[in-house]
């Protein structure tokens, strides 16, 4: 049970990061920190995981790092929203 709770909260964090990256277009780390409401080290860990899963890409521009959501990332967000909608009918949240 503890593991599934952890998994659910991770999914929600992923959703927050990906939504922020999608809305911003090219999102800076500082912007993602604000939007995801996470400490820097945890955000970097999640960003690395999202890149590993091809849901987010890192772009270096003039010494600044930006993050952009990928097509696979958008599909992932849609699928999680559908799952959220499905689960909500049973009174369960992700």
């Amino acid at each position: 049970m503890a593991q599934s709770e952890k998994q659910r909260s991770t999914i929600r964090i992923y959703l927050d990061i990906l939504n922020a990256a999608d809305e911003e277009g090219n999102a800076k780390t500082t912007r993602l920190l604000q939007r995801a409401n996470l400490p820097h080290d945890r955000l970097m860990k999640h960003l690395a995981e999202l890149q590993k899963r091809d849901l987010l890409t890192e772009v270096n521009n003039g010494g600044n790092r930006y993050y952009t959501i990928t097509r696979k990332g958008r599909e992932f967000v849609s699928e999680v929203r559908r799952a959220q909608s499905f689960l909500s009918a049973f009174g369960v949240s992700i």
Binding site: E79, L87, V92, I94
Partner: peptide
Amino acid sequence: AFRYRRVTGSSFL
């Protein structure tokens, strides 16, 4: 339910 479980890892699903 199976498809959404793969994304969320929900034990309920």
